[in-house]
Simulated assay, not measured.
Amino acid sequence: MRSPWPGSRRRTERSQADQRGAVVTITSEGRQLMAVAAPQHVADVQEAVIDQLTPAELRTLTKITDKVRRRLAALDPELETDTQ
């Protein structure tokens, strides 16, 4: 997949665990670009998704995402992060 920004903003290496995959590392320049883009992205998601849901739908979405997050953390403990 091509980077949405011109120039190199990431490094790609072959996965040592699974030769079919790749590990992508964001460069410091890429991190800076993400930091600039993040506030607008959050506002867009808020307007397009969150603001369209009822309180009951938001509770359901929270339950679903928590369940998925727990499953992913069980598969790879390094993914576990406290988002509360």
Results as ranks from 00 to 15, higher is better:
47 E>D: 14
72 L>M: 15
49 V>P: 00
50 I>F: 12
11 R>A: 09
33 L>Y: 15
32 Q>N: 08
63 K>G: 05
83 T>D: 15
11 R>Q: 15
28 S>N: 07
54 T>H: 00
48 A>R: 13
59 R>H: 06
74 A>L: 07
9 R>I: 13
29 E>W: 02
27 T>D: 07
77 P>V: 01
43 A>H: 05
76 D>W: 03
49 V>T: 02
79 L>N: 04
24 V>I: 14
59 R>C: 09
54 T>F: 00
66 D>E: 11
48 A>H: 12
61 L>E: 15
66 D>P: 00
5 W>H: 09
7 G>L: 04
71 R>E: 05
19 Q>Y: 01
33 L>I: 07
71 R>G: 01
53 L>Y: 00
25 T>C: 02
10 R>T: 13
21 G>H: 13
39 P>E: 10
55 P>Q: 09
11 R>S: 09
84 Q>R: 15
78 E>S: 13
39 P>H: 08
81 T>N: 06
9 R>T: 05
15 S>C: 12
20 R>M: 14
31 R>F: 05
68 V>R: 00
72 L>H: 13
20 R>G: 03
78 E>K: 11
37 A>F: 03
83 T>E: 10
61 L>I: 08
61 L>P: 09
6 P>A: 07
75 L>G: 10
7 G>I: 09
39 P>N: 06
74 A>H: 10
23 V>Y: 02
64 I>S: 13
8 S>C: 08
18 D>P: 00
22 A>M: 03
2 R>F: 06
81 T>Q: 10
46 Q>K: 08
34 M>I: 08
45 V>P: 01
77 P>Q: 04
53 L>F: 00
57 E>W: 02
46 Q>P: 05
26 I>F: 06
10 R>G: 03
30 G>V: 08
77 P>W: 01
38 A>V: 05
66 D>I: 14
3 S>Y: 08
4 P>A: 14
1 M>N: 15
57 E>R: 01
30 G>L: 00
73 A>E: 11
37 A>I: 02
46 Q>L: 12
1 M>L: 13
66 D>M: 13
79 L>D: 01
4 P>H: 05
44 D>R: 14
60 T>N: 01
19 Q>R: 05
43 A>L: 11
65 T>D: 14
70 R>F: 05
9 R>W: 03
80 E>L: 14
45 V>S: 09
80 E>A: 15
68 V>H: 01
39 P>Y: 14
4 P>K: 12
40 Q>Y: 13
57 E>T: 01
23 V>D: 03
30 G>I: 04
37 A>H: 06
35 A>T: 10
46 Q>C: 05
23 V>G: 00
37 A>R: 10
70 R>G: 04
71 R>M: 02
61 L>Q: 15
